[in-house]
Structure formats: structure tokens, C-alpha cells
């Protein structure tokens, strides 16, 4: 018999550790031809940080993203940005790049202020032009860059960001993170009571990311996290026997594959974080955190039996159903 159930999982997750120093830096050079070189220690391991950092620099300097060249994770030339871990890079390196861009922008705005007879604080950059009080002026960014170079001024910026290091008190407690990401996921499952197999039919995953710098990449992170969460809930278990991993290959350590992927509805919630670049927080790990809880709750909803250890394998389900059956009298 196949039984369906629905379950909910919620989570909050700290972004920007404050217990220990947690900085990232960035260098930026606004070159004379209008291209922008960004040096960052932030290693893009596929989550799309180089694109997000380019977007942040482009947004601040009012240039096209095609004009941004990001040199990432080259310890020969890039400043330290710490690890690509803890869902921290958009928040921390994003702020570092934003600050570096602001510094270079300030040089340009000061120069533009002289040309336009305006205060630098009234001016902005956008679409390759200098803007004044929300109106585009005829002065281009390239004009200003050329004037700077004629005077021997370089348009460089450097920035670094460290969420305020609070440390821990004697009890090892304190304010552990600069901000938090929140998420709720809902899973719908079908459980085969004869085989114990759980199929995840649908997942809805709503994530507060502060601000989605790159919505497509955020969706990709959420979808990937959901599938990894299915593995955590139902399949994946490292079997260790006297210090040896007993299942060190994909034929034995089973990952969810394409045919296991359910409908996944990624929902981006944007509640801007005041200390984040353009309000952004992080999404990498949060994407996976509530999935197993949502699925385990859905299985409990379907069967009326709760499971307290993962993965919820067919063997565990059949054992629980058998045990439950044993408690019932035959005529029940």
C-alpha cells in the first residue's frame, strides 16, 4: 500500500562567525578603458561567487558586468578572503568588494565634482555616465577616468570586512554570528508500506537570503541543497568499521541521482540585512539544512510512526511497521 504524507522543516543558520576573526579583503583597479579588475581571495567552487562579486562591483561602479574581470583565489596576487565555507563569501567578500569599489568610486566622484561644479556627495555613477541628483549628466565615466590619468591619479580601491569579532565569554557563549538566514521547506512523500521505499514527490523551499545578488544562482544553490538533503534523509550513510570506511564507492554509498530528483520549487524571500552587501546574506548550507527534517516529518505524517535517526532507510521503515503491527491485536 502506498501512503502519502506532508512534512515541514524550518531552520535558522548563522552567517558571519564572530567568535574569532573572520575577515576578507579585495583590491580593485578601475582601468582607463573602463574595465574593472577585481582581485579577491574568494575561491569560487561552483556556487558562483565570482559572478556575484562582479555584479556587486558593477552595481557600485555603474558599469556592465562584462567590463568586470575577477581574479579569484590566486594567492600570488589576491588578498586573503578566508575559506569558501560557512555560507560566508557573499556576505563577507561581497562587503570587501563593495568597500573597494566605493573607494575607487570616491576618486572618480571627487574628480567629477570639479568638472560639474557639484559636491561629490550629489553624484553617482551609472550606465557609463556620471549622474547628479538622479539625472544623467553628459559627462561619461571614461572622461573622468581620462582626466584622472592626465593628472597622474590612479583609480584604485581596497576594502576589507570583518564582522565585529565579539569573542566568547568564560562559558564559551556570546554573540556567535553577525546575522542569520532563515528557511522553511515542505516535503510531500509517498511511502510504499510493502517495500519501505520513500519517494519524495515535491519539495517547496523558501529561503530568506537577505537579497539575492544572482537569483538564478541562488535557485541553483537551493535546488542542489534540496537534493543533497534527500540523500541525507533517505540514503546517505558512511559505514565505518574499525576505522575503515565500509562503503567508499558510489555503488555502495548511494547518492540521489537524476531519477530521484523531485519537483523542487525554490522560493526566494528577500528581507535585506543592513550589514550585508546590498542586503545579502548567505544560502549555501541553509539550502540543505531543513530538508531531512521536512522529509522525516512527511514520512511520520504518512505512516504515523516517527523516526529518530537518519537515513530513514526502507529497512528501518519495515522494521518499524512490523513492530507496530506486533503491538496490535489480530482483529484490530
Amino acid at each position: 500500500m502506498k501512503k502519502r504524507g506532508i512534512g515541514v522543516g524550518c531552520m535558522w543558520y548563522g552567517i558571519g562567525n564572530t567568535g574569532a576573526p573572520n575577515p576578507a579583503g579585495a583590491f580593485l583597479d578601475f582601468l582607463e578603458d573602463g574595465t574593472v579588475l577585481v582581485l579577491t581571495g574568494c575561491a569560487d567552487i561552483g556556487q558562483g561567487s565570482s559572478t556575484a562579486l562582479a555584479q556587486i562591483a558593477a552595481g557600485e561602479l555603474g558599469v556592465n558586468i562584462e567590463d568586470i574581470l575577477v581574479v579569484a583565489g590566486d594567492t600570488g596576487v589576491s588578498p586573503d578572503a578566508g575559506a569558501t565555507s560557512a555560507s560566508r563569501q557573499t556576505y563577507i567578500s561581497g562587503n570587501a568588494v563593495l568597500l573597494a569599489a566605493r573607494q575607487a568610486k570616491e576618486v572618480l566622484l571627487q574628480e567629477a565634482a570639479g568638472v560639474l561644479g557639484a559636491a561629490a556627495s550629489e553624484l553617482g555613477l551609472g550606465g557609463g555616465y556620471v549622474w547628479r541628483g538622479g539625472e544623467r549628466t553628459p559627462v561619461t565615466v571614461k572622461d573622468i577616468l581620462a582626466r584622472c590619468r592626465q593628472k597622474g591619479k590612479l583609480t584604485l580601491g581596497s576594502g576589507w570586512f570583518n564582522p565585529l569579532t565579539t569573542g566568547l565569554d568564560e562559558a564559551g557563549q556570546g554573540v556567535p554570528y553577525a546575522t542569520y538566514s532563515y528557511a522553511t521547506q515542505v516535503a510531500e512523500v509517498e511511502v510504499d508500506t510493502e517495500t519501505g521505499k520513500v519517494s519524495v514527490l515535491r519539495l517547496a523551499a523558501a529561503h530568506d537570503v537577505g537579497r539575492a545578488v544572482n537569483p538564478q544562482a541562488v535557485e541553483g544553490q537551493i535546488e542542489g541543497g534540496c537534493l543533497m538533503g534527500i540523500g541525507y534523509a533517505l540514503l546517505e550513510e558512511v559505514k565505518v568499521d574499525r576505522g575503515r570506511v565500509g562503503n567508499p564507492r558510489y555503488a555502495e554509498y548511494i547518492l540521489p541521482m537524476s531519477l530521484d530528483a523531485p519537483e523542487i520549487h525554490a522560493i526566494i524571500v528577500e528581507d535585506p540585512e543592513p550589514t550585508g552587501p546590498y542586503g545579502a546574506k548567505g544560502v549555501g548550507e541553509p539550502a540543505l539544512i531543513p530538508t531531512a527534517a521536512a522529509i522525516a516529518n512527511a514520512v511520520a505524517d504518512a505512516l504515523g510512526v516517527r523516526f529518530y535517526d537518519l537515513p530513514v532507510t526502507p529497512e528501518k521503515i519495515l522494521a518499524a511497521l512490523t513492530a507496530e503491527g506486533d503491538h496490535k491485536s489480530p482483529d484490530e
Binding site: 537551493i222 535546488e223 537534493l227 541521482m257 537524476s258 531519477l259
Partner: peptide, 20 residues
Amino acid sequence: AIKTAVSGNLCRCTGYVKIV
């Protein structure tokens, strides 16, 4: 059919949604 065709190719990042 798409999911079956790529079922021998593991991806740990995408959840396959955008691949399909």
C-alpha cells in the same frame, strides 16, 4: 527521458532541476 538519459551522470551541485 531526459532524467533517464543523464541518470548515469552524477551531479552533486544542481539538484538536476536546471540540467533537465
